[in-house]
Every structure is written in C-alpha cells, then in structure tokens.
C-alpha cells in the first residue's frame, strides 16, 4: 500500500480477493458454510489487510451463529476499512445483529445507529 492512501477503493479490486469472495459465495449458496469460510480464510492468509474478506467472513460467522467471532471480524474489517463508509456501515450492521442475538440490546442499538450514520452520508442501503 502507498504511504498516503487514505481512500479505499469503493469495492474489492485485487483478482485474488475477488476470486476468494466469489468462491466463498458459491460455496455458501450451496449451503457449505464451513468450506466457504475456509476459502475466505485462504484469501485472508494471502491478503490479511483486505477489509472485504474480513467483512464477508464476519457475515458467514453471523449466519452460523458464531456471534463473538462475527463481532471480532467485523471490528477487524472496520480497522482496515479506512474511509469506506459503505463497508463501515456493513460491519456495524453485522455487529448490531450479533449483539442483538446475544441480548446486548444497548450495544446493539448503538451499533445500529453507527451503521445508519455511515450509510446515510452516502445513498447506501443494505
């Protein structure tokens, strides 16, 4: 990465990241969550600073009910997302849902508000 790039591109661009996301999506659609996660992890081993891979992994963790992992991985994605509001919003949404599932309603509400705040500054709707 360049020393001064604060601006994240709007979406993933690197071929290997795109391929890993694709593969995971196909596997998840087939109901094979475990291999879908493995293929995202393979992507993360290659590109550990890529926030989309971490985001997608947090989504799969959420789907499989691994709430704490979902929260941690969405947080990790946030820490790598720079100024990408769409991604930040998506991550806070994952955190909100995982918190809610854990019964942490106050934290869930705070996270939801963050998600909405990030989403509203750009016309982004999930």
């Amino acid at each position: 990465m360049q020393a001064d790039d604060n601006q994240m591109p709007a979406g993933p661009v690197e071929p290997v990241v795109l391929a890993a996301l694709d593969e995971a999506e196909t596997l998840a659609a087939r109901g094979d969550n475990s291999r879908a996660m493995a293929s995202l992890e393979r992507g993360i081993r290659i590109k550990p600073k890529d926030p989309w891979l971490w985001h997608q992994l947090s989504v799969l963790k959420l789907r499989s009910g691994q709430w704490l992992d979902a929260i941690a991985m969405a947080g990790k994605s946030n820490s790598l997302a720079g100024d990408n509001r769409q991604l930040l919003s998506g991550n806070w949404m994952v955190i909100a849902e995982a918190r809610e599932a854990r019964g942490e309603l106050t934290e869930a509400e705070a996270a939801r508000q963050k998600a909405e705040a990030y989403a509203s500054n750009r016309d982004y709707t999930e």
């Binding site: 020393a3 790039d5 604060n6 946030n78 790598l80 997302a81 720079g82």
Partner: peptide
C-alpha cells in the same frame, strides 16, 4: 511490509 496509514475510526 510497510505499515499503512489508513485512518482508523
């Protein structure tokens, strides 16, 4: 690897 200067919330 060079540490990035991405902004952190």
């Amino acid at each position: 690897g060079s540490l990035t200067s991405l902004s952190v919330e």
